[in-house]
Design a protein around this nucleic acid. Structure first.
Length: 847
RNA sequence: GGGGCUAUAGCUCAGUUGGCUAGAGCGCAGCAUUCACAUUGCUGAGGCCCAUGGUUCGAGUCCAUGUAGCCCCACCA
């Protein structure tokens, strides 16, 4: 097919992806050493966003580059049921139809969400394809696939047996709107303006009272003690005595605990073990009863005096303050800013509530992980994330894995109907009640935290425990993810991976930042600055989006979405396209002619660039590697080599260079490079995808240097022409074979009207290295150019001064590496030579 | 309270173990244009690399302190 005038991505992308799939291009080659990476499973409840565009671009560039290195690359796609997240999205849809989750049984809800997710998944798959991700669809994994569930159960069971999982009544972070508990890590803390209330609790015996300070007066109804610091002189006498709890008349003890800070508030703290994590611990230490006064609906319940029963926490607070004040118990208040936990989805204040849940004892797991990370078994890009993760692991707390929602993997545990302490493991989760040893057991209605199952991702996707894939590809070479889930996913994968497989799950972690809008603000619907990656693809093409994501990108930092970078990428694709058009028009054979100076030059450039490119790609420095290939294609090939080819064509070499460039650019711009490949009759049956980098012959250095001199001279002439604003200039040159050979090129690229051999000095002289030419420009036009020359002379003089002082410094000569000193000498010599030339030229013009 | 990040051209950002005469894209100014490409070509302007001190022959890069932004963790009642 004849290539159109410019690259139109929309006309080719879909067909190209289908071609790759139909030719099994992304199934591991089985040749070469294995290289595996796994796509972080996409939440199956919405559309791809810019973060996905970034993450898949990075992963896919790595995957495609490794194929070009001859590796057997496995890149596994997947989706996550995303338990709570998805249920929230689904609920929002339900509310639009006038229903709520309470209109359905758990089973019905589960089925409906499954349907919703299933539709969404197909949509997501097509979006992943549009981004060009070279994933092996035959190994696609969904987090509710039997294998994933089986592994979650196996891990749960074995941890339970080893005592790493326990069930206990603890204070959990409960969202009263969503009706479920969360892990500590999922709670969002916000600074809020609040009040510290001072309340006076009278002594049971005798006169006097103790004034306590609290931000949550409503929980006083559940107080079971007041604590003071054992060393606090003010309260020394009172320890062991009792107080009468206002509004309830319950008697509570004054206890001593070193947790209490005598300098904060009044130095006396009310203790509510059922509603505050610290109080819970103090309660455990002092064996205090736990009085629950807030229910799972967020209302005051249970052991609460009548007037307050049924009020919300907020209403209760006001009512209690009012009652305390009326009865003379309120001793004052002060403003304070404190941090309050909120549900990360709906913003409801998280209530610490007593609840029985399944917990994982994280300390031993974290310890193993820290050891492995410290031993360097996992490389972090950037390395600072390693320190952060270790810091987190060192302070880790137990992980609550129970969730009170419908959408998720049911916990395979049953409790004896007649003995709440008798729990057994059983996988018959499709039954609510089972009989074991003539006893009736009822299923735990809860489901696993999604992260519990997704933390097994690196090995479940490979078919652990018994599969060739697992043996061959585990541990993964690369885990690429956003740094926002460093703790909840990366950390847990490492811990569970070590626990289950006895190996680290991956050798390298690459963490990208968040995509913000152009001014560094988070993309959010309410601000209205969200950009849909599919619309960017519609407008500029998939390759352009990938390049926009990757150029100027560094790991570990947030990065703004900058449209101009996408446009730059689009333009680059078009540049490749037009180089291909030139080849299609002008190159009729693959005959390799005798190498010209330009040929030697471009081969030299290729060699230099290829080495830099490889080194950068091997070190996951994609942005810089892209710059290498970008400048090679645009500056070297398009601006110089193709121009030289118009004068003198070496068909075989032009073609080879195009092929080589396409292979190099392919990881960044897979669609346009493959489209060109398919349309150019170069090896028609094969795909570009998967081709290995080409080694081309090296150019002769002297020949290359000679061509470089021509380039320099052309640049000088151009500069002069622009500075003098002249047209229709005749160029003459003294006898020189180098110049003679390139007269056409010089004429074409400078735009002079003629290039001819001349013996006399006409007009102004232009010199570059050992070449000189004359331009018939009258002396009076060169004022601007003279100014430029003067500037250049000045620059050269400062440079020489700097180099000389450096070389006159005996310490430098003594201590700097020898080759560096040698280089300085060379630079100085070159500078002096250059200065001389500039001066000669300047003198010429001065006449 | 603990941990971490950022500060470089008008904008958005690169700059690996110190060797920099500090780069890119976009933007800006001027010129060109039927010849692969206006998704173009050419020429150019534009920077006390946040501040101060230190280490070093040499610091954008390393160290310390400070200033200004930002993120994460945490049980300040």
């Amino acid at each position: 097919m004849k290539l159109s005038k410019s690259y139109q991505p929309q006309e080719h992308e879909a067909a190209i992806y289908s071609l790759w799939e139909s030719r099994n291009a992304f199934i591991p080659s089985q040749k070469g050493s294995p290289y595996a990476l796994v796509m972080p499973p996409v939440n199956a409840n919405g559309n791809l966003h810019m973060g996905h565009a970034l993450t898949f671009s990075i992963q896919d560039i790595a995957a495609r580059y490794q194929r070009s290195q001859g590796k057997s690359v496995l890149y596994i796609p997947g989706a996550d049921h995303a338990g709570f997240e998805t249920q929230v999205v689904f609920e929002r849809e339900l509310i639009k139809t006038g229903k709520s989750r309470f209109d359905y049984s758990r089973e019905e809800l589960y089925k409906n969400i499954f349907k919703f997710v299933d539709q969404n998944r197909t949509n997501l798959h097509s979006q992943i394809r549009r981004l060009g991700a070279s994933v092996d669809w035959t190994r696609y994994t969904f987090s509710l696939d039997p294998a994933v569930v089986r592994q979650a159960y196996a891990t749960f069971h074995s941890m339970w047996q080893q005592g790493l999982i326990y069930r206990g009544e603890r204070l959990v972070n409960f969202c009263t709107y969503h009706g479920t508990a969360f892990a500590d890590i999922e709670v969002v803390h916000k600074e809020e303006q609040g009040k510290l209330w001072h309340i006076s609790y009278p002594l049971t015996e005798g006169k006097g009272s103790v004034v306590i300070a609290t931000t949550r007066p409503e929980t006083m109804l559940g107080d079971t003690a007041v604590a003071v610091n054992p060393l606090d002189k003010r309260y020394q006498e009172l320890i062991g005595k009792t107080l009468r709890l206002p509004l309830t008349n319950r008697e509570i003890p004054i206890i001593a605990d070193s947790y209490v800070d005598p300098d904060y508030g009044t130095g006396a703290v009310k203790i509510t073990p059922a509603h505050d994590p610290n109080d819970f611990e103090i309660g455990e230490r002092h064996d205090l009863p736990k009085v629950t006064v807030i229910g799972f609906d967020g209302r005051l319940v249970h052991d609460v005096p009548e007037p307050f029963k049924g009020l919300t926490v907020e209403e209760g607070r006001a009512a209690i303050i009012n009652a305390l004040s009326k009865n003379g118990y309120l001793a004052g208040s002060e403003d304070l800013v404190h941090s309050v936990g909120h549900c990360y989805k709906c913003g409801t204040v998280i209530e610490p509530l007593l609840m029985e849940q399944w917990f994982i004892d994280m300390k031993p797991l974290a310890k193993q992980a820290i050891t492995a990370i410290r031993a360097g078994e996992i490389k972090f890009i950037p390395d600072t994330k390693r320190k952060q993760l270790i810091n987190y692991l060192e302070n880790i707390r137990d992980w609550n894995i129970s969730r009170q929602i419908a959408w998720g993997i049911p916990i395979p545990a049953f409790v004896n109907e007649n003995d709440p302490g008798d729990w057994i493991y059983d996988e018959r989760v499709d039954q609510e009640v089972i009989e074991v040893n003539n006893k009736t057991y009822r299923r735990d209605p809860d489901v696993f935290d999604t992260w519990f199952s997704s933390s097994s991702w690196p090995y479940v996707t490979l078919g652990f425990p018994a599969s060739d894939n697992y043996t061959k590809f585990y541990p993964l070479e690369l885990m690429e993810s956003g740094f926002d889930i460093l703790y909840q996913w990366i950390g847990r994968m490492i811990m569970l991976g070590l626990y289950v497989t006895k190996q680290v799950p991956f050798k390298r972690v690459y963490l990208h930042g968040m995509i913000t809008d152009e001014h560094g603000r988070k993309m959010s619907k309410s601000v209205g600055n969200v950009i849909n990656p599919m619309e960017v693809i519609d407008a500029y093409g998939s390759d352009a989006l990938r390049i926009g994501m990757i150029s100027g990108q560094t790991p570990g930092n947030n990065q703004p979405y900058v449209p101009s970078k996408v446009i730059g990428g689009r333009n680059f694709c078009n540049k490749l396209w037009n180089i291909a058009r030139f080849v299609q028009d002008k190159v009729e054979s693959d005959q390799l002619a005798k190498l010209s100076l330009a040929d030697h030059w471009i081969l030299n450039r290729y060699d230099t660039m290829l080495r830099a490119y490889r080194k950068l790609m091997d070190n996951y420095r994609f942005s810089e590697a892209y710059e290498e290939i970008y400048h090679f294609v645009w500056d070297d090939i398009a601006d110089w080599y193709i121009e030289a080819s118009k004068v003198s064509l070496n068909p075989g070499l032009v073609k080879q260079l195009l092929e080589a460039s396409l292979i190099l650019a392919h990881p960044f711009a897979p669609f346009v490079t493959e489209t060109i490949w398919q349309n150019l009759d170069i090896t028609p049956d094969s795909l570009l995808s998967g081709r290995q980098l080409l080694d081309l012959p090296k150019g002769n250095r002297r020949s290359a240097a000679n061509f470089n001199t021509i380039i320099g001279l052309i640049n000088q002439v151009r500069s002069m022409l622009v500075a003098t604003g002249t047209i229709d200039v005749k160029l003459s040159y003294p006898s020189s074979s180098l110049l003679k050979e390139h007269t056409s090129l010089i004429k074409q690229l400078t735009g002079v009207s003629s290039v001819a051999l001349g013996s006399g000095e006409v007009g102004v002289e232009i010199a570059y290295a050992d070449l000189k030419v004359w331009l018939d420009i009258s002396q009076d036009r060169v004022v601007a150019y003279k100014q430029r020359l003067d500037n250049q002379i000045q620059q050269e003089l400062t440079k020489i001064a700097r180099l000389e002082s450096r070389l006159n410094n005996p310490q430098y000569v003594k201590r700097a590496p020898a080759d560096l000193v040698k280089q300085s000498h060379e630079q100085l010599a070159a500078s002096k030579q250059n200065l001389h030339q500039l001066k000669v030229e300047r003198q010429q013009l001065a006449r």
